[in-house]
Amino acid sequence: MRIDKPLLQVKNLKKYFQTPGGMLHAVDDVSFDLLPGSTLGVVGESGCGKSTMGRAILRLQEPTSGTVLFDGTDVTACSKRELKALREQMQIIFQDPFASIDPRMTVSQTIMEPLIIQHKMDRRDKKGLERKALEIMELVGLAPRLVNSYPHELDGGRRQRIGIGRALVLRPRFIVCDEPVSALDVSIQAQILNLMQDVQKQMGLTYLFITHDLSVVKHFSDEILVMYLGQMVEKCESKRLFAQPMHPYTQALLSAIPVPDPRVRMQKIPLKGELSSPIEPPVGCRFAKRCPYATSACTQKAVLPREIEPGHFVACVRAGEL
């Protein structure tokens, strides 16, 4: 067995927001380790806190409490200057390729901006910048003729390639990918996923891959973390999660995916109601109200993830017996 030191260690990460209705628990006590070169998929429904978690790890939003260790450095304790230096190694790809790039900057300007911000290259070195831009554009599959194009001239797939290029230009070690293919058509989605896999191999990248698309996450991730209302409910190796989901929420979630084969009739586990409010959530299991197996024990005290089998964490009092 490989014994690698984790590249990223998240411990008891919390992010709360003050709202008129009380404290909103967007991310509530999430802990996990991420090995270098691997991909952790984060899945959950809208509002479960998966994007907030990704942002809190990079300190794009200040965590309320908890620690994030990146290669041993405590990101949460960094000064602004230290954080800027660290950002060279930690990047993000955003969901919406229409909103996340500046419409008034050309392709090369967008891709090169991080280098200028990090003082890796001089703004006046036009030749050098263009050469570097073309190098990255080739890496992400953008034709050289687009070097001076503006985003409005490009379709969603190409824009997302710009977003990926911008994240790669500093040669980071870790990238948070926040729904990078959700806004794209299926045929383009496959192109982008392949591209991301290729650059991961080439550059030895570590990904935190946030998505709501369960088929994509299975294809793409080594491990999967399932979130529900700000908490981690299950985490294990990707294939095992799909073969043997243990948390009732994961089971219901997986059973709801429409199978692209008409001969397979889905055995759906119906869920009552919808996501409840993350504002001042009750103690105990947050899924209990919708859970078909809930007992009185579920709502009495906080349910923490337990390691049911090696590497398989489940936050359910009845895990293992179901």
Partner: peptide, 18 residues
């Protein structure tokens, strides 16, 4: 080009071009 839950593939086969 869609990833399938009941099959494991190393690489998706996208439609080239747009």
């Amino acid at each position: 080009s869609i990833p399938k839950l009941n099959e494991d593939v190393d690489r998706l086969q996208p439609i080239e071009g747009m």
